[in-house]
């Protein structure tokens, strides 16, 4: 019997690799190609870097980038909330398993559903403002989704509320896997709750926190479309106050019939996200090593 060639295993996986290359690689190549063309319908003439020049020269694109960067401010809040709630749950207070399910519910619900509900709640005459007025806090009854100055912060509240749920579950899973004897030993040695958190728990959680931060950064830059689309009236409004890069791409492709422009912006977003994913893997590797 002839021993199998070294190539044999590769031949076995070749069909799947070819399928994946076709499903993911081909569209990606086409997007790169389109970004250098003035596409009308399904193709168009080669125009070099013109699409990139137009995108980078448009104030709206930079406004969109700025909004994505503003959303990054949500990440420290999400980490803080996730840490506090997960640590409290890990203390195994009465009913903690039920609380665990409740705090994870936002993440299970589809974004469009929670966004539609939130939008109703934050309307000028909606329940949030009605409650504030009832509490005689009229000065806090803002036009949450109708004011250009406030709308992006309102979206951020929704994102924090939903995305923190993932952080809580990730952090809680890590907390529950900690070696309890170390914590017990610290207790016996007289370490109070704060000391245990600062000197034992947080260092042990460093890897998962870094992971969550990198995932959240990617989310804020490239995965907030659903939130923005619904809360911003489908247009990143009012005006362009909640427009983000994903919506910019969507508008260019679907509403302005500019596939070349959409592709150029997509390529840039892809490259930035690619760098972040690379960082994610490095962080994970380092976390595993420690």
């Amino acid at each position: 019997m002839t021993p199998p060639s070294r190539l044999t295993p590769y031949l076995y996986v070749l069909p799947l690799v070819a399928l994946l290359a076709f499903v993911f690689g081909y569209p990606l190549l086409r997007i790169f190609e389109f970004s250098f063309k003035m596409v009308r319908g399904i193709d168009g003439p080669w125009i070099g870097l013109r699409n990139y020049q137009l995108v980078l020269g448009q104030s709206l694109f930079w406004e969109s980038v700025l909004h994505n960067l503003q959303l990054l401010l949500a990440i420290p809040v999400m980490v803080g909330i996730s840490l506090i709630v997960s640590v409290l749950l890990s203390e195994r207070v009465a009913g903690w398993k039920l609380y665990r399910i409740i705090v994870f519910v936002p993440f299970v619900l589809a974004i469009p559903i929670v966004a539609v509900v939130m939008k109703r709640m934050f309307q000028f005459s909606g329940p949030v403002n009605e409650m504030l007025r009832w509490m005689s806090l009229d000065f806090m009854a803002l036009d949450w989704i109708g004011s250009s100055d406030v709308a992006l912060w309102t979206v951020m509240i929704l994102i924090i509320w939903r995305e923190s749920a993932l952080g809580i579950i990730l952090f809680l899973a890590r907390l529950l896997s900690l070696d309890e004897s170390v914590i017990e030993a610290a207790k016996i040695d007289g370490a109070n709750w704060w000391h245990r958190l600062w000197h034992i728990i947080l260092p042990e959680m460093r890897g998962v926190i870094e992971f969550y931060v990198v995932v959240s950064v990617i989310t804020m830059l490239a995965a907030v479309f659903s939130y923005i689309y619904i809360m911003g009236g489908g247009r990143g409004g009012p005006g362009t106050s909640t427009e983000v890069v994903e919506l910019y791409i969507f508008n260019a492709l679907i509403r302005s019939s500019l596939p070349g422009i959409a592709s150029a912006a997509s390529v840039m977003l892809f490259l930035v996200t690619g760098v972040l994913i690379f960082l994610l893997f490095r962080v994970r590797r380092r976390a595993e090593a420690t």
Binding site: L60, D143, G146, S147, S148, D149, R235, G237, P238, G239, T240, N251, R255, S256, S257, L258
Partner: peptide, 22 residues
Amino acid sequence: MPGQFYERAAIPTGQQIVAGSM
């Protein structure tokens, strides 16, 4: 209107005037 004009001018202008920011 070209789609680009519709999205970038026609819609945002009205929204911002009504919001009092334009």
